[in-house]
Amino acid sequence: MFLIVGLGNPGDKYEHTRHNAGFDTIDCLADQYGISIREKKHKALLGQGMIEGNKVILAKPQTFMNLSGEAVAEILNYYKMDPETELIVIFDDISLDAGNIRIRKKGSAGGHNGIKNIIAMTGTQNFMRIKVGVGMKPAGGDLVAHVMGRLPKDEGEYFDLAKKNTCEAIAMILRGEIDRAMNAYNKKVREKEEA
């Protein structure tokens, strides 16, 4: 079984903001595979289903971003899952242009508070993650305002592309093809398409 977690903040005012890229991508995955995310349990909204022949739990922590690890740790403990082999976390990344994604087998928090908390609560940074690009803040701009803002309309198509690519990458990862997924999607998709 795999636990696939999308990070974000609960509540209408945070819907479709850059910081909620993880939530939006989980919704995309749920739609694609017919998984209903309605169960409220372990400080998260959960849905169970099958992807590529694997049982999966899709989760959207409801703890707010900075405490995401509380929900992740509870779910992992309850289902006796190993974060190093059965956890995939999807989250926003301001160092990537909107439209680009980056798949990693492990790594540091890189300044992301949600990931920092997951590392603290699970005791490991060796878990798979997919970073969804939301673009850098403008020079002199406020970081919080940037991540809590929504992508402008002209960037929306790039975010749709990132969600589609993330769903395809997850299918590959669940087939045991993470290296192939990294080779396919850790490139600058947006620049390639614009060229």
Results as ranks from 00 to 15, higher is better:
105 K>Y: 12
146 H>T: 08
99 G>S: 11
145 A>K: 12
104 R>C: 05
127 F>W: 04
91 F>K: 04
135 G>T: 01
150 R>C: 03
111 G>L: 13
158 Y>D: 11
94 I>V: 15
157 E>C: 03
101 I>C: 13
86 E>P: 00
94 I>C: 07
98 A>T: 15
86 E>C: 02
156 G>F: 02
161 L>C: 04
144 V>P: 00
117 N>P: 05
112 H>Q: 15
108 S>I: 12
87 L>H: 11
108 S>M: 09
134 V>Q: 00
103 I>F: 03
118 I>N: 11
108 S>D: 14
83 P>D: 06
136 M>F: 07
139 A>M: 10
153 K>M: 06
92 D>P: 04
110 G>E: 05
123 G>N: 04
138 P>K: 12
157 E>S: 10
97 D>T: 10
100 N>S: 09
151 L>R: 10
83 P>Y: 03
89 V>G: 09
122 T>G: 09
97 D>F: 00
148 M>A: 12
110 G>D: 12
142 D>M: 03
124 T>Q: 03
136 M>G: 14
131 K>A: 11
153 K>C: 01
122 T>F: 06
134 V>A: 08
150 R>W: 03
84 E>S: 13
91 F>I: 00
113 N>V: 13
107 G>N: 09
120 A>M: 07
118 I>M: 12
151 L>W: 08
144 V>H: 11
131 K>I: 08
156 G>E: 15
96 L>V: 11
85 T>V: 10
144 V>G: 02
123 G>E: 00
123 G>S: 00
95 S>M: 01
136 M>C: 08
110 G>R: 03
137 K>R: 07
90 I>S: 07
123 G>Q: 08
159 F>V: 02
148 M>V: 12
